[in-house]
Write a protein that binds this DNA or RNA. Structure first.
Lengths: 105, 105
DNA sequence: AATGATATATCATTTTGTGATATATCGGAG
DNA sequence: CTCCGATATATCACAAAATGATATATCATT
């Protein structure tokens, strides 16, 4: 993340999972489940990205964290950025689909 | 690209542009235009990725290339992979939108 | 012939992502 | 009550991906 521009896929998945309060491990499991194993964010990537997102204030520690589980949620800023990225991604898909229709083999 | 799994954003943009025959520079300009400057793939990234995509046979040199311009197009394999990635991306967006609706602040 | 846009290319560096590994706790089976 | 697998967080060293800077050459226009 070069600051706040486009989110990478991994970052997007993690932020999408944190629209509701969740702890790291749950985020990891959720992504694997919902993508049916197609996308896996391992612990190294997960905790690295979480750390960055906290620094950038796109997510924050949630109150019901205990010593064992650190629960995170999107901040308002994070929600905003996620929404913007959803729009960007919709545009990407439209572009690709338009191209595929025209360039029919 | 760890071989053929998910496409990164840059790769996706480039492949989407190559649903129709285009040379590198045109791909670069097209992405910048269609995203209204939101996403820029500079020459370094562009030609690095093009080289990789050729090796992976997701794109190939098109006949009407001359010495000056190298025109590329998606291969059948490339088209297939792009379609799969479109589906993956649609799912990503659904996930994020569902989350945002529920986790309303 | 000079200039700016077009066009491809690579090097060195930064940014991102990851496999492996470490550590600790919890809940249940035996 | 202890052993064990699942839960949970964390980091290191490395690999993969992306990029800024730069180089080079050609084309079109002035």
């Amino acid at each position: 993340m070069k600051s706040l521009e486009q989110l990478t896929d991994s970052v997007f998945y993690i932020m999408a999972a944190l629209t509701e309060p969740r702890h790291g491990y749950a985020v990891m499991s959720l992504i694997e489940e919902t993508t049916e194993g197609a996308f896996v964010v391992g612990p190294a990537s997960l905790y690295t990205i979480i750390k960055k997102l906290v620094v950038e204030q796109l997510i924050q520690l949630h109150d019901d964290s205990d010593s064992r589980r650190k629960v995170y949620v999107l901040t308002d800023k994070g929600r905003e950025i996620l929404l913007e990225d959803i729009e960007r991604r919709k545009t990407m898909i439209h572009l690709a689909e338009q191209g595929l229709q025209r360039g029919q083999k």
